[in-house]
Every structure is written in C-alpha cells, then in structure tokens.
Design a binder for these strands. Structure first.
Length: 496
RNA sequence: GGUUCCGUGGCCGAGUGGUUAGGCAGAGCUCUGCAAAAGCUUCCACAGCAGUUCGAAUCUGCUCGGGACCUCCA
C-alpha cells in the first residue's frame, strides 16, 4: 500500500508524510474570526481539515488538532484610523464586544455540527492568550527583531530577512514587497514599509484593550497563532493549515515570529485549501458576493434558487480536490444533492445486502470491488484526493444497485468480498469523508407511522386498490416524502 | 505593475505522455397498474497556434482569456 504524501506549500511539492514524533501528529488550523457570520467560503477549510484530521485518525495516528478562535479582532485600516474590527461592529450593534464574540462563536459551533465536523482537540481563543502573546513579543524584542514606537511594537522584517529566508512560503522577494506595498497610515512609525505590527497601541475609543509593557493596546495581526501553536503543539509541529489567502502575509509573518522566538520553523507541512468562487470570483465581503451558511441552509439569499443541506455542501466540497478552486452555482449544488442522494441510497442498500451462496462467481466483478476499494487508500494517500475517492465509490454504485434489483446475482461476489466492501464504504463514507444520514427519521414514532403507511400501500397494491395506494404516494409527495415501489414488492420512502 | 495559478464535453469537476475518471443534465431501451427509483446503451472534451515525440488534454514556446496574492480576508 502507498504511503501518505502531502503537498507542502513551503517546498511547493508533494512530500512523504513523516510525523516528527512517531504515531503522533500536531496540526494547527487557522480558525474563524468571530466578528460576523460564517459564509460558504469559510466552510471549505474546516471541512477540508476535518477530513484530513479524520484520515490521520483512520491511519492510527494520535492527533492533537488545534483550531483557534480569533476573538481579539484584527484591526482593519479604514480611513484614517486603524480600528478594531470587533469593537467597531459592537458599537453599531450596541453590544458588548464579548457578547458579539459569544454570539458568533456559538453560531460557528452550530455550523460545524451541521457539517458533521469533529471537534478540535483544543480550541484556544486569542483573548485567552494575551499573556502568551506579550511574552512572545518580549522575546522577539530581546533578540533584537522588533522595536517599539509610540507604544506599538513592530517586527523588523528587513533584519530578519538578512538571516532567514523571508518570503519563501509565499514566493515573495523582499525588495519587490517594498515597492508594491500599499501606502498605509502610521507608516512613519515603522522603520520599513514591510514591517508588521506585533502590538498596537490602543486609541482612547478602542474598547478591547490590555495592559502591556508598552502601554494599553491590543495584539497585532499574526502573533496569536504563533503564541497558541507554540503553547499547545511546541516549537515545531507537523501540519499548519488554512486558506490560501492566508499564505501572505499571515503565515509568512507567523513563520518569522516563531522562527525568531523558538529558533525553529514552526510547521513541517504547510497545507492550504483553495478558494470557493462564485461566477469565477472569490467569495468575500469585499466582493459583496457572500452566501452565509444560515442562508444556504434556508435558501434565503437572492443567489440561491433553493435551500441546500449541510451534507450536500460537504459533498460538493469533497467532490473537488482541496487545492483547486471550486465554483459555486445552483446547478452544481443541485448536481451534488442528487449525486449524494444516489450514493447514500446505494450505501444503505449495500449495508442490507445479504450474501447468497451459490456456485456462480465472477472473478472480474469481484476484482473490481476489491480494486476500487483499495484504490481509495491510494487516492487519499495522494494528497487527500477525495474527488477520486468519490468517483470510485460511484463506480461501485451500479453493481450494488444491480445486486439489489436482482439484475446481478449477489453470489457473483464472495461473502468475503461483500464484507470487505461494506467495511470500506462505511470507513470512507462515514468515518473519513464524514458524511451522515440526513433522512433518517429522528424519532421512532415517526418511523413507526411511516412503516405503517408503507405497509398499507403494499397491501393496497397487492389488491390492485390503486386509489388507496396512489393517495398515500401523492399525499406524502406533497410533504416532501418520496415513495418507491421496490422490485421485491416492498415499499420504501425517502425524505427529500 | 510584481508574484503566481488556471483555461477539460450543456453544467460541476478528476486526470500530467499511450488506458473509461466521476457526478448532474440530455437521448434510446428495460422494468413498472401508473410513477419514481434503478439498470443497460448512447451523445458531447481537453482555449488557440506552433513545436518536441512513434504517440500529448498531459512536455516546450507563443497568443488569447480568467482567477488569486501583493490590504482585513477561508
């Protein structure tokens, strides 16, 4: 069997995955900024890294998965004042900053549950680690790579670049950066344009503020991730993940901070997911084309022709390799919805297939089952190619359906092969890809009622009482429940 | 402007030298009380041009088009 290889943004190639500590993996993923509602674009990294987390667990690793909550608010440069994003909105909505943070944190957790994402091992908050961030800044200053101006502290990029390969992750050349860096306010506080803030002095109107050796202020753009990853995963850990748009400046800065502080490159493998686009453009606030997750689930957004379930979105995202852009459209989502439904029905049917012994055996078919299953391991090992995994699952949907309908005799594959396939489907569909049944009636009473209705329809059809049987089917259809007459005379149903 | 990635059939998307990706949609057939579902068969492709090669969607060059980052951003 193949071994796991991961594309490392730092080296720009796929590398064999070798954990720093045998059998253990440390993974840090940049989490949400809880100053607003998550949108479809935000869903991608968390689903991508959930699958990576699940796969590492499947391989038997003990994984510590750290995903932060950014609740301190990275400031934006708007107009003349640098403002704390969270505080600014808090004023508009007349809420306490922490009330806002709590609200959106809860909403984020709710969305993660909808997507069936496993909880990270540790979910640290930026505001809970101000002390660690200040300590880190002090260390960087002691080493001479940061300086204070007017109560703010800046990282000296130029000095760092003299000794370390600044820009390697993002493929940037320092001299180019100086030329292309946009003119920002307060530049005069910096020695060089490309320097970035470790600590910012808080103006009087700033609500979120903490005491520091440099006066009252708040942490800079990138220091929280360096401080928290160091604290929970150590100076050096295996995987650092996030969206591609974080490569520069966020991750580049993180590398610089951690390298000075810990004398080590923080992460071994830098993994970045690509963007979700809409009409070819990245989904983002500045483009005014965001679809919030709550809107996606409810269908209430002008861009949507219908609501989409969380599993449809998860499936949609996994049908594409994580490093490719994924273009949103209603057509594509609807295709995903139907595809997932077909896959899930076949999966349920597979679970219920019972081996029937006979002499007949089709070697080629049996080999197809074994090969298609085993190939999925190779696909996942090849930089988590979930698109190919799904393709293979689908190639087995046809024969599974044929077994069920009787077009193919079940005995054409062996008991062993059938069990093998069942195990692989369960592992991949539920444990690794993290899909789950959305149609299962939540309570037993409803289940009982549905079975009764199905019984009545079956009996009515048996008596050729089509008035009754049609009534059941038509009425249920209006409620969004699809009734199917199976080949074997049974009647089944699906919640749409 | 700098850096970088991409351009695959009606739509979404795998795929890096020779082999069916896959999903959705379309067409025909089978099954069915009628449906639905399912199965079988089938149509549609590699932006353009030139080159390398026995052979290219896959490598090289050019042209055209688009995206991302350079600023908070998943």
């Amino acid at each position: 069997m193949s071994e796991l290889t991961i594309y490392n943004t730092y080296s720009r190639q796929k590398e064999l995955f070798v954990p720093l500590t045998q059998d253990h993996v440390g993974m840090y993923v940049c989490g949400p900024t809880v100053s607003g509602e998550s949108h479809l674009g935000h869903a991608r990294p968390f689903i991508t890294f959930d699958v990576i987390y699940r796969y590492l667990l499947h391989l038997g690793y003990k994984v510590r998965y750290v995903r932060n909550i950014t609740d301190a608010g990275h400031f934006e440069e708007e107009g003349r004042e640098a403002e704390d994003k969270i505080s600014k909105k808090a004023v508009i909505e007349k809420l306490e900053p922490m009330e806002l943070v709590q609200k959106y944190t809860n909403l984020f957790h709710w969305a993660m549950l909808q997507f069936n994402n496993l909880e990270p091992s540790i979910e640290p908050t930026a505001t809970g680690h101000i002390v660690e961030q200040i300590e880190m800044i002090k260390k960087i200053m002691e080493d001479g790579y940061a300086y204070e101006t007017n109560g703010s502290v800046y990282f000296d990029v130029k000095k760092y670049a003299d000794k370390y390969p600044y820009g390697k992750l993002s493929g940037r050349v320092l001299d180019d950066l100086i030329e292309t860096t946009r003119d920002l306010e307060n530049q005069e506080e910096k020695r060089n344009k490309q320097d970035f803030a470790l600590w910012k002095s808080a103006p009087p109107e700033h609500i979120m503020r903490w005491s520091s050796p440099w006066g009252e202020g708040f942490p800079g753009w990138h220091i929280e991730c360096s401080a928290m990853s160091t604290k929970y995963l150590g100076d050096r850990f295996d995987i650092h993940g996030g969206g591609m748009d974080l490569i520069f400046p966020h991750h580049e800065s993180e590398i610089a901070q951690s390298t000075v502080c810990n004398h080590e490159m923080p992460a071994h493998y830098w993994v970045h997911n690509n963007m979700i686009t809409i009409n070819g453009k990245k989904m983002g606030k500045s483009y005014n084309n965001v679809i919030r997750l709550t809107e996606l689930f409810s269908g209430r957004n002008p861009l949507l022709t219908q609501a989409y379930s969380s599993m449809t979105i998860r499936f949609f995202i996994l049908q594409t390799h994580y490093r490719s852009t994924l273009d949103f459209s209603n057509e594509a989502l609807q295709a995903a919805e139907k595809g997932l439904h077909r896959l899930w029905c076949a999966y349920l049917d597979l679970k219920n297939l019972v081996y029937e012994p006979s002499k007949k055996r089709e070697e080629a078919l049996e080999r197809q089952f074994y090969d298609s299953c085993r190939e999925m391991d190779d696909f996942m090992n090849d930089d988590f190619n979930t698109a190919k995994v799904l393709a293979n699952l689908f190639t087995l949907v046809n024969p599974i359906n044929s077994f069920k309908s009787g077009d193919l005799e079940k005995s054409t594959i062996s008991q062993e092969c059938l069990d093998f396939t069942k195990t692989y489907f369960r592992n991949y569909i539920e444990h690794i890809l993290g899909l789950r049944d959305e149609n299962d009636p939540q309570n037993d009473r409803l289940k009982g009622v549905m079975e009764l209705l199905m019984d009545i329809r079956r009996d009515a059809r048996g008596k050729k009482d089509f008035v009754t049987s049609d009534k059941i089917r038509n009425q249920l259809a209006r409620l969004g429940i699809l009734v199917k007459d199976e080949k074997d005379g049974k009647v089944s149903y699906n919640f749409e």
